[in-house]
């Protein structure tokens, strides 16, 4: 009950943020929301199904490039259409990739996802005419529910309508993932994570369920990617680079992968921490590396593990 109250209070605070916080802090929440959605997907694979992907940035980049391609090349500005197209495209790409990856577990699964992520990075980098190569592709300002909000400048757009749109998408994604995790499918994934042989013995189709989880995670990743691309205004190949996948895993560990809301807390904490440390020192990557080591060694259950008692995801 207390936990639900806290979550609702946090949601209310986020809803009021544009009225209370300075515009810059509000713009920082946007990537946190985008990563939050992508990480809900990543945590379905890791926290629930026990598969750690080091290539999740592939799908985040796919979402960003979908937004870029549709807005600049095809004149599609409707953000609903962009999100739907990104989700569809991610599912299409995830089918062959997932079919190959879920044949393996543990480090082999991780390495294979890493390989596909880097393959996509190379594709983005090399197929200049299609992807813009190293220079990437611009992402134009989309229409939200058919409205251009032309009267607002970019900051007004980002901290106003786009903020609430992103927050609503995050809420929808969170509710959808909650249903998925608590469904018989989600429980089966957990059974697979705990003991795949036993799960298979009681009739769970292990590989098929892992595959479904992979595709769902990809869709969440791409939806997060579309949200991430709009504030930047550019999709570039670094979004698919392995370090970006590493950052996603870091956020998950930071928030606490055992908790359902761990991804959201991790994304928020990472973004604000990065903002703070980057301004303080040029060696912020070193600080983050040290922090990752500390989290893994001393706080393996992440930030939520510090405040909330143990609870299965």
């Amino acid at each position: 009950m207390i936990r639900r109250g806290l979550a609702l209070a946090a949601a209310a605070l986020l809803a009021l943020a544009p009225l209370l916080a300075p515009p810059y802090q509000v713009t920082l929440l946007l990537p946190a929301f985008a990563y939050g959605i992508a990480l809900l997907g990543l945590n379905l694979l890791f926290g629930t199904a026990g598969l750690l992907s080091f290539g999740h940035a592939l799908f985040v980049a796919l979402g960003a490039y979908t937004a870029a391609g549709l807005t600049t090349r095809y004149g599609v500005l409707s953000f609903e259409a962009i999100v739907a197209a990104a989700a569809g495209l991610a599912a299409v790409v995830a089918v062959p990739v997932g079919l190959l990856c879920v044949r393996y577990v543990k480090i082999y699964f991780g390495m294979l996802t890493l390989a596909f992520g880097m393959l996509f990075y190379s594709f983005l980098y090399k197929f200049y005419a299609l992807t813009g190569g190293d220079e990437g592709l611009r992402v134009l300002r989309p229409l939200l529910l058919g409205r251009p909000f032309a009267e607002l400048d970019k900051v007004g757009f980002l901290t106003g309508p786009f903020y609430y749109y992103a927050l609503a998408l995050l809420a929808l994604a969170t509710l959808a993932m909650r249903r998925i995790v608590r469904s018989p499918f989600g429980l089966s994934l957990r059974a697979i994570r705990e003991n795949a042989d036993k799960a298979a013995f009681v009739g769970v189709s292990v590989r098929r369920y892992r595959f479904y989880a992979f595709v769902i995670a990809a869709v969440f990743g791409a939806v997060g990617g579309t949200l991430l691309a709009v504030p930047t205004g550019l999709a570039d190949p670094l979004l698919a680079y392995w370090t970006h996948s590493g950052n996603l895993v870091f956020m998950l560990l930071l928030g606490g992968f055992e908790h359902f809301l761990g991804p959201l807390v991790g994304a928020l904490a990472f973004i604000f921490l990065q903002d703070l440390v980057m301004s303080l020192t040029a060696y912020w990557r070193f600080v983050f590396g040290a922090l990752l080591a500390i989290v893994v060694v001393f706080f393996p259950r992440g930030l939520l593990g510090l405040v909330a008692p143990e609870r299965p995801a």
Partner: peptide
């Protein structure tokens, strides 16, 4: 990166 530099 472009994304992080835009944020800066």
């Amino acid at each position: 990166s472009p994304k992080d530099t835009v944020e800066r």
